[in-house]
Design a binder for these strands. Structure first.
Lengths: 196, 196
DNA sequence: AGATTAACTGAACGGATGTTCAGAACAAGG
DNA sequence: CCTTGTTCTGAACATCCGTTCAGTTAATCT
């Protein structure tokens, strides 16, 4: 039998993506087989190829979709005046965005090396744009004299790593809410760049 | 032919570990085959099983060896008086240690999920010991009034993530020496906990 | 009602996987 | 010099891999 009742592409399609995202985040791209994805979706393995040309494209599509959403959401955020408030906005945005999609964040840091070179280049370029936004804030603050950062490039790396690290330990329903976490991180970031 | 001249276990053994470490770091545990390791070592695949009971044990052995070295090296470090100097020692030690073994650091953060549960528990416990050392410093500094950190647990996570992040961008021979990098990071860490 | 099309099954393809093992080649010890 | 033990080869094992495709089913269109 094929095409059981109510199973259409607009149901199976997202299900394939969701399942792949979850399994890739849990076990890693290389450790997850197409058959495993199919089993959890509830179809035979061949059916997956209605939704992706191959396994590599599935990974790339997930990462690309995530980066597109990250960039467009960030650009739609209110952009306060002055480096200090812009930095705070970045910190709070980053933490909120990350904690809302832990799996996507996880694979977009862990599975980069499993991208084909041309796919890697695309994602890497998008990441540079995003991290560049942080560095621009730091540079502005430094030149306006409201921050004191000896090396803005390096500081942006350090802060990104610190902020992205929340995903390794934060669990929803824990002792701290997302807002409380953001408050604490912002406190540390603010002091680390010597802002008021 | 077998046993060609000069190939003994005290040469092949370390070569297997070095090769496995390099390949795991480069492509990921699941993406590297035993045959690939054997090829780069220069033996047939069966010969690897003189040095490890199986692939999983090889990964665990690499991670365990790394964590053992991390803990014993840290415990052998001079232990300055007072939280401020102890924190500085920790920061400089961590950066130095990490940048000296980028591959081992990489796999011990990336390949944890590929460990069998009982192996994972061992490594996780060791990691907790190490991170606990940082938190103890923060707690002491907080209670002595030389630091101002609202949440020492969370701050230790944040700082560890920030410090470990150096491995993602630092390349030997770049524009900054390890000492310069450590100076800059220490400056940020110091300020983030409000130490003089 | 009949034709068309989208969605899926079931099976197959060649090749790669981790692991085992009998036997060969060599070095060392008596 | 002959035995013993170590180290390795070469081949095999069963199983899994990503991917393809002819055929089947069910929804949609005319």
């Amino acid at each position: 039998m094929a095409r059981t009742q109510g199973s259409h592409s607009d149901i199976t399609g997202p299900k394939v993506r969701d399942t792949a995202l979850r399994l890739f985040a849990q076990h890693g791209y290389a450790a997850v087989s197409m058959r495993q994805i199919a089993r959890e979706v509830g179809v035979q393995v061949g059916a997956l190829y209605n939704y992706t040309p191959d396994k590599q494209a599935l990974l790339f599509s997930l990462l690309k979709g995530h980066m597109d959403e990250l960039l467009s959401t960030w650009e739609a955020e209110p952009r306060p005046d002055g480096p200090r408030d812009r930095l705070e906005a970045f910190v709070r945005f980053h933490i909120r965005f990350n904690l809302d999609r832990p799996q996507a964040i996880f694979i977009s840091y862990m599975e980069l090396r499993n991208l084909a070179p041309e796919n890697f280049a695309v994602i890497e370029a998008q990441r540079k744009v995003y991290e560049g936004a942080l560095e621009a804030i730091l540079r502005d603050g430094q030149s306006e004299g409201v921050f004191s950062v000896p090396d803005t490039r390096l500081a942006s790396y350090a802060l990104i790593a610190m902020l992205t690290g929340v995903n390794t330990w934060y669990r929803a329903g824990g002792r701290l809410s997302i807002e409380e976490v953001a408050d604490i991180y912002w406190d540390m970031v603010r002091k680390s760049v010597s802002a008021d």
